[in-house]
Design a protein around this nucleic acid. Sequence first.
DNA 1: GATAGTTTCATACAAGCGTTTTAATTGCAA
DNA 2: TTGCAATTAAAACGCTTGTATGAAACTATC
Lengths: 217, 217
Amino acid sequence: MAADHTRSAILSAAERLYAARGFADVTMRDIVTAANVNLSAVNYHFGSKDELIAELFVTRSLVTNRERLQELKAAESAGDGRAAIDDIFTALVGPTLRGCLGPGKQRSDAARFMIRASIESVAPIRKIKNREVDHLRRFAAAIRRALPDHDPADIFWSIHFALAMAHQTIRDTERLDKLSDGACDTDDVAAIVTRIVGVSVLMLTHRARPVRTATGR
Amino acid sequence: MAADHTRSAILSAAERLYAARGFADVTMRDIVTAANVNLSAVNYHFGSKDELIAELFVTRSLVTNRERLQELKAAESAGDGRAAIDDIFTALVGPTLRGCLGPGKQRSDAARFMIRASIESVAPIRKIKNREVDHLRRFAAAIRRALPDHDPADIFWSIHFALAMAHQTIRDTERLDKLSDGACDTDDVAAIVTRIVGVSVLMLTHRARPVRTATGR
DNA sequence: GATAGTTTCATACAAGCGTTTTAATTGCAA
DNA sequence: TTGCAATTAAAACGCTTGTATGAAACTATC
């Protein structure tokens, strides 16, 4: 009864380790050591390593998607059924970014775990991941309502790129820190969200004309 | 002498497998089977698995960086020392995108391998990867020459995001294909390059004002 | 407080990994 | 051909992996 302490200890230890080091590097012995439980506990409570990963992924998917949809719905009701594009993109990339980045750089293992899962496509996850497309469709629909005359392809591309920028920023701020020598503040999450949202909106509201700026002096 | 056939067979087989399935999933036995050589050949010719990966990565890094710098220099000399921003970004993301995508979806294992390496940061690669920052600095400098009055941080962010969009597009076109139901042509590499370059230029040439478009009906 | 049902534990297992070892084979110079 | 080094081959090594086993320690119900 009260003894599912082991279960949750495994879950949180596994999530933390997977988020930090990826699926490939983390063994079951690493997990049970970190969770201070016996080796057999994983198999007893979850069946197998893959089922543990799957359970983590499913749980976190639901949480993340719920957060995003909540923000989206709030934006839509605030806009009387038609959300502002900024708010739509903020609802899309905000939750994950806020969950992963920040001064502590480690606020939520959950969000970091989801990024890992989206990268190291391991077998038990691949099957589940198709649902994400359905989830993203709702954001595409919301944007289409906000910009009815737009080419749908542009809208899909903007979602694709917004997620790309968010994920890359979560995954590797180190390169940007080094490259910019600190000029880019990768701790200011709100500014990062604003920046990514700004770019995403920009690429939708400006037609992609073949610009040719500042050719030679 | 002429017997380095084995060596190159291993190299190309390893590159192809790593590019397709990642470092974690590919074993040495997979490699030697694909290369039709004996298991010991890898250790004999390269010393260890890590050294094989490192050699692949170093070789391909040099090639990729050379391609990008060639395009950059060509753009700079065409612009009389100051390249057009479009051309700078094209030099940055073009070679990798062209190498990875295309109708065959498998044109170059080399480029795909580099994407893998940039994601699954494995031990032997991590040490070498710091050089990439120096390489990217040259593009930052080129952009600063093209836009002397710009905030350097914006320039670094634009490079960061341009690479993010390119890598994500290479890594996972499947989700976009499904989401857009084919409306986004992920085979038209030239259009993708143009699109990414366009967005990158856009975010530099438009100040990131706090846009609030289409709020409400 | 004995008993049935869970949960933990130590241990063992088979399979797969990268690497090593040792012998056989090859290619070429003398 | 003979001799010698370079290469390939076959087998086994030690180690780690995920999983399975059966006994021990709990927990709750009667």
